[in-house]
Amino acid sequence: MRQVQESLTIATTRHGNHDVTRDIAAWVERQGIETGLLVVLLPHVSAHLTLQEHADRDDLHTFFRRLEVRNMEDFGEFTSAVTSVSLSIPVRDGRMGIGARQRIYLYEHRDRAQNRNLLLHLIGE
């Protein structure tokens, strides 16, 4: 079994979803690990990770915006309770085993552009 780790920097531009699937998939496919487990960690408290369909990202953005308005005072706590900052994704045949319609999004909760780190850990052989 081998392990590889990498830190990717993602420049977010605005509040909402940023598709990071291609960045992560390209890194996984370069590692030469056929079978294994990928863990993606986002070490931030005002952004989260989600797997969604491309078509739905605007509605999802609107839903979170409405929750924010309703729960403004404790939004930070509420968001971290219902969202995730890490994903574990099986790797099969050298690629992430995600569904055909699944994309990985980094959801930015801040209104201004930010630099976010994504830590990737892949173990397998």
Binding site: L37, Q52, S88, P90, R101, Q102
Partner: peptide, 10 residues
């Protein structure tokens, strides 16, 4: 060991 279950749907 460690089991990971991943659902391929949204």
């Amino acid at each position: 060991g460690l089991l990971t279950a991943f659902i391929q749907h949204t």
